[in-house]
Nucleic acid binder design. Structure first.
Length: 303
DNA sequence: ATTCCGATGGAGGACGACCG
DNA sequence: CGGTCGTCCTCCATCGGAAT
């Protein structure tokens, strides 16, 4: 949230003008602090930026620009509601596109509202696999192709990952199963596969400590020294250049945590799983994961 | 010596009135 | 219609005196 002063600096619109636009045309309706100070959301700022562009570059009067903005927003809402109708695959596509576009424009509130809407309609599992994961893949591809900026890629990944973590807590934890540590080593920035695998483990009742992408070695070691029950350590890498580093890291971690099993996965190991000395090498397709899980943890499951 | 508390003043925000 | 002015209000840092 931004104060009026910050918005003035960001947009170069005088504070008196911002207040006049609000009072006369309800251009935006910022929240207020207890003492009545305005608090502008990111969406408010983007709306104001759009209004400024219309008045300065298109020569539109502020009152007309506000009417245009409201019409635009109503259309967006209509599009959202129409997602609920029509065939399901189209609906996923439409929702994916809208959430992606909202995040691309840094409209976090709108994206979250759409995700909430999707979760209420389809449930978390379908939303993950049909909408959120494809968005993560799409933004990664867009970044590699130079269509999305680093900021857009980071923002989108961050927002979606946050939703993943929130839903992690929905699943029960079975205390007889070992605790899992999941991370991508330093230098590896792609965490989509790891996130999905962590979700899979959480669904099966395992407690997962998820450290995410690009995790430095010191962090992992100090974390393992604090956590006693870690029985499975999962690493994911997509970059083949990182294989030797990753294998050496596993050897070092085995010394810190001798009782733990190691699991590696990710595109880097897809071609040749024998490159790893880990206890398990997990590759696509994800349908095989359940068979592996049942095989390894069935004995532990019988409570 | 340290902590607490009320008084004071400057900076900045809210809002109605005003002006071109 | 849309930007600006003037006044009042709130916040917050600072200071000095009282209490511990």
């Amino acid at each position: 949230m931004y104060s009026i002063k910050q918005v003035v600096e960001m947009l170069d619109i005088p504070s008196v003008t911002l207040r006049a636009w609000e009072n006369r045309y309800q251009a935006v309706t910022p929240e207020r602090t207890e003492s009545g100070y305005r608090l502008y959301s990111h969406e408010n700022v983007e709306d104001l930026r759009w209004l400024k562009e219309q008045t300065e570059q298109q020569g539109v009067s502020i009152s007309h620009a506000v009417r245009m903005l409201k019409a635009r927003k109503e259309k967006q809402l209509d599009d959202t509601l129409s997602v609920a109708s029509g065939n399901t695959q189209d609906a996923f596509e439409k929702m994916k596109e809208q959430i992606y576009n909202a995040l691309h424009d840094f409209q976090g509130e709108r994206a979250n509202a759409l995700i909430d809407f999707g979760l209420s309609l389809y449930g978390y599992e379908v939303m993950f696999h049909q909408v959120l994961v494809p968005i993560l893949i799409q933004v990664g591809d867009a970044w590699e192709a130079g269509i999305a900026t680093v900021a857009q890629e980071h923002y989108t990944t961050h927002m979606i990952s946050n939703r993943f973590y929130q839903i992690f807590h929905v699943f029960p934890v079975y205390s007889h199963l070992p605790k899992v540590l999941a991370f991508c080593p330093a230098g590896e920035h792609h965490q989509v596969g790891l996130l999905l695998f962590a979700l899979f483990l959480r669904k099966n009742g395992m407690e997962v400590i998820y450290l995410g992408a690009n995790t430095p070695e010191e962090g992992i070691i100090s974390m393992l020294e604090q956590q006693s029950r870690v029985g499975l350590i999962c690493l994911s890498i997509t970059d083949k250049e990182l294989i030797s580093f990753s294998e050496e890291l596993i050897e070092r971690l085995r010394i810190v945590c001798p009782g733990a099993k190691f699991l590696v996965g990710g595109k880097a190991y897809e071609r040749d799983p024998s490159l790893s000395k880990a206890d398990y090498v997990m590759t696509e397709p994800a349908e095989h994961w359940q068979a592996w899980f049942d095989h390894v943890f069935t004995s532990m499951r019988s409570k």
